[in-house]
Amino acid sequence: MKSRRQTTFIAGACLVISLIMSILILRRVDQTRPQATLDEVLYISSPKVLERASLGYNGLMADIYWTRTVQYFGQRHYRSAQSYNLLAPLLEITTHLDPHLLVAYQFGASFLAPKPPSGPGQPDRAVQLIEYGIQNNPNEWRLYYDLGFVYYMELKNYAKAAEAFERGSRVPNAHPFLKLLAAQMAQHAGEYETARTLWIATYQTTRDGHVRSNAVEHLRALKVDEEVTRLQSAVTRFGARTGRLPSSMSELALAEGLKGTPVDPDGNPYKLNSEGRILVEHPDDFSFITKGVPQGYKPAPPKFHVQP
Protein backbone atom coordinates (compact mmCIF):
# COMPACT_ATOMS: atom_id res chain seq x y z
CA MET A 1 0.00 0.00 0.00
CA LYS A 2 2.70 2.42 1.03
CA SER A 3 4.89 1.91 -2.01
CA ARG A 4 1.90 2.33 -4.26
CA ARG A 5 0.94 5.62 -2.71
CA GLN A 6 4.53 6.76 -3.08
CA THR A 7 4.57 5.86 -6.77
CA THR A 8 1.29 7.68 -7.30
CA PHE A 9 2.67 10.76 -5.65
CA ILE A 10 5.93 10.75 -7.61
CA ALA A 11 4.21 10.04 -10.92
CA GLY A 12 1.70 12.82 -10.23
CA ALA A 13 4.48 15.27 -9.47
CA CYS A 14 6.35 14.21 -12.62
CA LEU A 15 3.20 14.71 -14.66
CA VAL A 16 2.62 18.24 -13.41
CA ILE A 17 6.27 19.29 -13.71
CA SER A 18 6.64 17.83 -17.21
CA LEU A 19 3.41 19.46 -18.31
CA ILE A 20 4.51 22.88 -17.12
CA MET A 21 8.00 22.48 -18.56
CA SER A 22 6.74 21.32 -21.95
CA ILE A 23 4.39 24.31 -22.18
CA LEU A 24 7.16 26.71 -21.20
CA ILE A 25 9.51 25.23 -23.79
CA LEU A 26 6.80 25.39 -26.40
CA ARG A 27 6.38 29.09 -25.73
CA ARG A 28 10.11 29.56 -26.22
CA VAL A 29 9.97 27.62 -29.46
CA ASP A 30 7.11 29.79 -30.66
CA GLN A 31 9.10 32.91 -29.81
CA THR A 32 12.16 31.77 -31.72
CA ARG A 33 10.11 30.64 -34.73
CA PRO A 34 7.36 33.23 -35.07
CA GLN A 35 6.70 32.31 -38.67
CA ALA A 36 7.36 28.61 -38.55
CA THR A 37 4.15 27.61 -40.29
CA LEU A 38 5.12 29.74 -43.24
CA ASP A 39 8.48 28.09 -43.82
CA GLU A 40 6.77 25.62 -46.07
CA VAL A 41 5.61 28.42 -48.32
CA LEU A 42 9.24 29.42 -48.78
CA TYR A 43 10.22 25.92 -49.88
CA ILE A 44 7.13 24.63 -51.57
CA SER A 45 5.57 27.64 -53.19
CA SER A 46 4.07 25.62 -56.00
CA PRO A 47 0.39 25.10 -55.26
CA LYS A 48 0.42 22.01 -57.48
CA VAL A 49 3.04 20.26 -55.37
CA LEU A 50 1.15 21.12 -52.22
CA GLU A 51 -2.05 19.84 -53.68
CA ARG A 52 -0.41 16.46 -54.25
CA ALA A 53 1.19 16.48 -50.84
CA SER A 54 -2.18 16.96 -49.20
CA LEU A 55 -3.17 13.49 -50.46
CA GLY A 56 -6.59 14.55 -51.63
CA TYR A 57 -7.56 16.31 -48.43
CA ASN A 58 -7.48 19.59 -50.33
CA GLY A 59 -10.38 21.20 -48.55
CA LEU A 60 -8.83 20.75 -45.14
CA MET A 61 -5.46 21.88 -46.40
CA ALA A 62 -7.04 24.96 -47.96
CA ASP A 63 -8.66 25.82 -44.65
CA ILE A 64 -5.34 25.48 -42.91
CA TYR A 65 -3.68 27.73 -45.46
CA TRP A 66 -6.51 30.20 -45.17
CA THR A 67 -6.00 30.52 -41.42
CA ARG A 68 -2.26 30.84 -42.03
CA THR A 69 -2.96 33.67 -44.47
CA VAL A 70 -5.17 35.56 -42.07
CA GLN A 71 -2.68 35.07 -39.27
CA TYR A 72 0.23 36.17 -41.41
CA PHE A 73 -1.56 39.28 -42.52
CA GLY A 74 -2.73 40.07 -39.02
CA GLN A 75 0.73 39.69 -37.54
CA ARG A 76 2.32 41.78 -40.27
CA HIS A 77 -0.25 44.49 -39.74
CA TYR A 78 0.28 44.40 -36.03
CA ARG A 79 4.01 44.78 -36.42
CA SER A 80 3.55 47.41 -39.14
CA ALA A 81 5.82 45.45 -41.40
CA GLN A 82 7.07 47.01 -44.60
CA SER A 83 6.77 43.85 -46.67
CA TYR A 84 4.05 41.32 -47.25
CA ASN A 85 5.84 39.16 -49.75
CA LEU A 86 4.15 35.91 -48.63
CA LEU A 87 0.62 37.23 -48.88
CA ALA A 88 0.26 36.60 -52.61
CA PRO A 89 1.72 33.04 -52.55
CA LEU A 90 -0.40 32.16 -49.51
CA LEU A 91 -3.56 33.33 -51.21
CA GLU A 92 -2.61 31.58 -54.43
CA ILE A 93 -2.00 28.31 -52.59
CA THR A 94 -5.24 28.63 -50.65
CA THR A 95 -7.34 29.30 -53.71
CA HIS A 96 -5.61 26.62 -55.71
CA LEU A 97 -6.38 24.05 -53.01
CA ASP A 98 -9.97 25.23 -52.78
CA PRO A 99 -10.95 27.34 -55.78
CA HIS A 100 -14.38 27.98 -54.27
CA LEU A 101 -13.15 29.71 -51.14
CA LEU A 102 -14.62 33.10 -52.10
CA VAL A 103 -13.45 34.90 -49.01
CA ALA A 104 -9.84 34.39 -50.07
CA TYR A 105 -10.43 36.31 -53.32
CA GLN A 106 -12.17 39.09 -51.45
CA PHE A 107 -9.27 39.24 -49.06
CA GLY A 108 -6.86 39.47 -51.97
CA ALA A 109 -8.90 42.24 -53.60
CA SER A 110 -8.78 44.34 -50.44
CA PHE A 111 -5.23 43.74 -49.31
CA LEU A 112 -2.96 42.65 -52.16
CA ALA A 113 -3.03 45.92 -54.06
CA PRO A 114 -2.37 48.62 -51.42
CA LYS A 115 1.20 49.76 -50.94
CA PRO A 116 3.11 49.21 -47.69
CA PRO A 117 2.41 49.64 -44.83
CA SER A 118 -1.11 48.52 -45.70
CA GLY A 119 -0.25 45.76 -48.14
CA PRO A 120 2.34 44.39 -50.53
CA GLY A 121 1.40 46.74 -53.36
CA GLN A 122 0.78 44.06 -55.95
CA PRO A 123 -2.41 45.05 -57.83
CA ASP A 124 -1.43 42.82 -60.75
CA ARG A 125 -1.31 39.73 -58.53
CA ALA A 126 -4.70 40.77 -57.15
CA VAL A 127 -6.16 40.93 -60.65
CA GLN A 128 -4.60 37.55 -61.48
CA LEU A 129 -6.00 36.01 -58.33
CA ILE A 130 -9.52 37.26 -58.96
CA GLU A 131 -9.44 36.27 -62.63
CA TYR A 132 -8.51 32.77 -61.46
CA GLY A 133 -11.48 32.90 -59.12
CA ILE A 134 -13.82 34.00 -61.91
CA GLN A 135 -12.56 31.16 -64.08
CA ASN A 136 -13.51 28.68 -61.39
CA ASN A 137 -16.66 30.40 -60.18
CA PRO A 138 -18.06 32.16 -63.27
CA ASN A 139 -21.44 32.69 -61.64
CA GLU A 140 -20.28 34.57 -58.57
CA TRP A 141 -21.06 38.23 -59.16
CA ARG A 142 -19.02 39.18 -56.07
CA LEU A 143 -15.81 38.23 -57.84
CA TYR A 144 -16.56 40.56 -60.76
CA TYR A 145 -17.27 43.24 -58.24
CA ASP A 146 -13.90 42.60 -56.55
CA LEU A 147 -12.17 42.75 -59.90
CA GLY A 148 -13.79 46.04 -60.85
CA PHE A 149 -12.92 47.34 -57.42
CA VAL A 150 -9.21 46.67 -57.87
CA TYR A 151 -9.22 48.22 -61.35
CA TYR A 152 -10.97 51.31 -60.14
CA MET A 153 -9.36 51.88 -56.75
CA GLU A 154 -5.83 50.72 -57.27
CA LEU A 155 -5.10 50.73 -60.99
CA LYS A 156 -7.36 53.69 -61.85
CA ASN A 157 -8.23 51.84 -65.02
CA TYR A 158 -11.83 52.97 -65.41
CA ALA A 159 -12.46 51.22 -68.72
CA LYS A 160 -11.39 47.85 -67.28
CA ALA A 161 -13.37 48.52 -64.13
CA ALA A 162 -16.48 49.29 -66.16
CA GLU A 163 -15.95 46.12 -68.14
CA ALA A 164 -15.65 44.03 -64.98
CA PHE A 165 -18.84 45.45 -63.48
CA GLU A 166 -20.60 45.01 -66.80
CA ARG A 167 -19.55 41.34 -66.97
CA GLY A 168 -20.72 40.86 -63.44
CA SER A 169 -24.10 42.41 -64.04
CA ARG A 170 -24.84 39.73 -66.66
CA VAL A 171 -24.38 36.89 -64.19
CA PRO A 172 -27.67 35.36 -63.02
CA ASN A 173 -28.86 36.79 -59.70
CA ALA A 174 -26.26 39.54 -59.83
CA HIS A 175 -26.80 42.39 -57.40
CA PRO A 176 -28.43 45.29 -59.30
CA PHE A 177 -25.84 47.79 -58.15
CA LEU A 178 -23.29 46.23 -60.54
CA LYS A 179 -25.18 47.79 -63.44
CA LEU A 180 -25.18 51.13 -61.66
CA LEU A 181 -21.48 50.88 -61.02
CA ALA A 182 -20.79 50.06 -64.64
CA ALA A 183 -22.68 53.15 -65.65
CA GLN A 184 -20.89 55.30 -63.08
CA MET A 185 -17.55 54.16 -64.46
CA ALA A 186 -18.58 55.23 -67.93
CA GLN A 187 -19.72 58.66 -66.75
CA HIS A 188 -16.71 59.24 -64.54
CA ALA A 189 -19.09 60.49 -61.95
CA GLY A 190 -17.89 62.29 -58.79
CA GLU A 191 -14.90 60.36 -57.59
CA TYR A 192 -15.80 60.40 -53.89
CA GLU A 193 -19.30 59.29 -54.63
CA THR A 194 -18.16 56.26 -56.60
CA ALA A 195 -15.51 55.34 -54.09
CA ARG A 196 -18.06 55.57 -51.33
CA THR A 197 -20.47 53.36 -53.22
CA LEU A 198 -17.74 50.80 -53.75
CA TRP A 199 -16.58 50.72 -50.15
CA ILE A 200 -20.12 50.50 -48.87
CA ALA A 201 -20.75 47.66 -51.28
CA THR A 202 -17.61 45.91 -50.04
CA TYR A 203 -18.70 46.43 -46.47
CA GLN A 204 -22.15 45.07 -47.12
CA THR A 205 -21.19 42.09 -49.20
CA THR A 206 -18.42 40.61 -47.10
CA ARG A 207 -18.47 38.53 -43.97
CA ASP A 208 -14.76 38.67 -43.38
CA GLY A 209 -13.88 40.83 -40.39
CA HIS A 210 -10.63 42.10 -41.84
CA VAL A 211 -12.20 43.14 -45.12
CA ARG A 212 -15.05 44.78 -43.27
CA SER A 213 -12.96 46.84 -40.86
CA ASN A 214 -10.74 47.84 -43.78
CA ALA A 215 -13.81 49.12 -45.58
CA VAL A 216 -14.86 51.09 -42.49
CA GLU A 217 -11.44 52.77 -42.36
CA HIS A 218 -11.67 53.70 -45.99
CA LEU A 219 -15.12 55.14 -45.56
CA ARG A 220 -13.91 57.23 -42.63
CA ALA A 221 -10.97 58.44 -44.69
CA LEU A 222 -13.24 59.26 -47.63
CA LYS A 223 -15.41 61.40 -45.43
CA VAL A 224 -12.39 63.31 -44.17
CA ASP A 225 -10.97 63.75 -47.67
CA GLU A 226 -14.28 65.01 -48.94
CA GLU A 227 -14.76 67.48 -46.09
CA VAL A 228 -11.20 68.74 -46.21
CA THR A 229 -11.57 69.35 -49.96
CA ARG A 230 -14.78 71.25 -49.38
CA LEU A 231 -13.29 73.38 -46.56
CA GLN A 232 -10.14 74.00 -48.58
CA SER A 233 -12.16 75.43 -51.44
CA ALA A 234 -14.03 77.57 -48.87
CA VAL A 235 -10.66 78.94 -47.79
CA THR A 236 -9.87 79.74 -51.42
CA ARG A 237 -13.24 81.44 -51.83
CA PHE A 238 -12.65 83.43 -48.67
CA GLY A 239 -9.27 84.54 -49.98
CA ALA A 240 -10.74 85.61 -53.32
CA ARG A 241 -13.42 87.61 -51.58
CA THR A 242 -11.37 89.31 -48.84
CA GLY A 243 -7.84 89.17 -50.16
CA ARG A 244 -6.55 87.44 -46.99
CA LEU A 245 -6.68 84.12 -45.28
CA PRO A 246 -9.26 83.46 -42.60
CA SER A 247 -7.71 83.91 -39.14
CA SER A 248 -9.48 80.93 -37.62
CA MET A 249 -11.86 78.10 -38.31
CA SER A 250 -14.69 80.02 -36.64
CA GLU A 251 -14.18 82.98 -38.98
CA LEU A 252 -14.31 80.63 -41.96
CA ALA A 253 -17.40 78.90 -40.59
CA LEU A 254 -19.11 82.24 -40.05
CA ALA A 255 -18.29 83.42 -43.55
CA GLU A 256 -19.60 80.15 -45.02
CA GLY A 257 -22.71 80.22 -42.87
CA LEU A 258 -21.89 76.90 -41.20
CA LYS A 259 -23.41 75.96 -37.88
CA GLY A 260 -20.49 75.76 -35.45
CA THR A 261 -17.00 74.58 -36.28
CA PRO A 262 -16.85 71.62 -38.66
CA VAL A 263 -15.66 68.38 -36.99
CA ASP A 264 -14.12 65.16 -38.33
CA PRO A 265 -15.81 61.75 -37.89
CA ASP A 266 -14.20 61.40 -34.45
CA GLY A 267 -15.72 64.72 -33.34
CA ASN A 268 -12.46 66.68 -33.35
CA PRO A 269 -12.68 70.11 -35.03
CA TYR A 270 -10.70 70.63 -38.20
CA LYS A 271 -7.76 73.00 -37.81
CA LEU A 272 -6.56 75.84 -40.00
CA ASN A 273 -2.84 76.53 -40.09
CA SER A 274 -1.10 79.81 -40.80
CA GLU A 275 -0.68 78.92 -44.49
CA GLY A 276 -4.39 78.44 -44.84
CA ARG A 277 -4.30 74.64 -44.99
CA ILE A 278 -7.09 72.61 -43.43
CA LEU A 279 -5.65 69.90 -41.13
CA VAL A 280 -7.01 66.94 -39.20
CA GLU A 281 -6.39 66.93 -35.47
CA HIS A 282 -5.00 63.36 -35.39
CA PRO A 283 -4.06 62.27 -38.91
CA ASP A 284 -2.85 58.89 -37.60
CA ASP A 285 -6.42 58.04 -36.63
CA PHE A 286 -7.49 58.09 -40.27
CA SER A 287 -5.40 55.47 -41.92
CA PHE A 288 -6.09 56.12 -45.56
CA ILE A 289 -6.61 59.89 -45.79
CA THR A 290 -4.89 61.79 -48.55
CA LYS A 291 -6.02 65.27 -47.54
CA GLY A 292 -5.82 67.27 -44.34
CA VAL A 293 -2.32 66.15 -43.43
CA PRO A 294 0.71 68.37 -42.79
CA GLN A 295 3.30 68.64 -45.55
CA GLY A 296 5.74 65.72 -45.64
CA TYR A 297 3.42 63.57 -43.52
CA LYS A 298 4.29 59.89 -43.58
CA PRO A 299 1.31 57.64 -43.08
CA ALA A 300 1.45 55.44 -40.02
CA PRO A 301 0.51 51.75 -40.26
CA PRO A 302 -3.22 51.36 -40.57
CA LYS A 303 -5.28 51.44 -37.41
CA PHE A 304 -8.54 49.60 -37.32
CA HIS A 305 -11.36 51.11 -35.30
CA VAL A 306 -13.69 48.19 -35.81
CA GLN A 307 -12.16 44.93 -34.58
CA PRO A 308 -11.95 42.38 -37.36
Binding site: A11, G12, C14, L15, S18, L19, M21, S22, I25, L26, V29
Partner: peptide, 13 residues
Amino acid sequence: LYALFYAAMALSG
Protein backbone atom coordinates in the same frame (compact mmCIF):
# COMPACT_ATOMS: atom_id res chain seq x y z
CA LEU B 1 13.95 19.24 -23.90
CA TYR B 2 10.42 19.34 -25.21
CA ALA B 3 10.46 15.73 -26.35
CA LEU B 4 11.89 14.55 -23.04
CA PHE B 5 9.38 16.45 -20.96
CA TYR B 6 6.42 15.54 -23.12
CA ALA B 7 7.34 11.86 -23.12
CA ALA B 8 7.86 12.04 -19.36
CA MET B 9 4.44 13.58 -19.00
CA ALA B 10 2.71 10.89 -21.05
CA LEU B 11 4.62 8.17 -19.22
CA SER B 12 3.68 9.61 -15.83
CA GLY B 13 0.08 9.56 -16.97
